[in-house]
Amino acid sequence: MDIHTSIVKRPERTFKESFTVFMIDTGSCGACNLEVKSLTNPIYDMHRLGIFFTSTPRHADALLVVGVLSEKMKDPLRRAYEAMPDPKLVIAVGACALSGGILGSGIREMLDADVLVPGCPPSPFTILDALIRSRDGQK
């Protein structure tokens, strides 16, 4: 039985041992932010899996995007992506980042996401599962 709800189009095995993620909010309601933030609490504890948040895209392996694409966040999104070293992944988290949901347009017009995590918001389990699969080669 396939219990995965996210789609990993392009996993990157380079990040198997250590995976550093930079989150950018391009126009969310805050729910996705809270669910992503939950990954650091002791219940999910993503650090035990070698997954960490970074506060700068310069140190990031993956750009995790939440929210619809608001006009004024287009430039910060582009600059964050360009600042990241190669290889890099783009992870779209939540219905808004994927398609715009009912509030706007998604990030597709600017970036092609490698990992799609649906949900409004996706649960921390779903996000964590997507992060694990995006670095270990499981599609």
Partner: peptide, 9 residues
Amino acid sequence: PVSGGLLES
């Protein structure tokens, strides 16, 4: 607008 210390932008 994008900073590690802030939850939102």
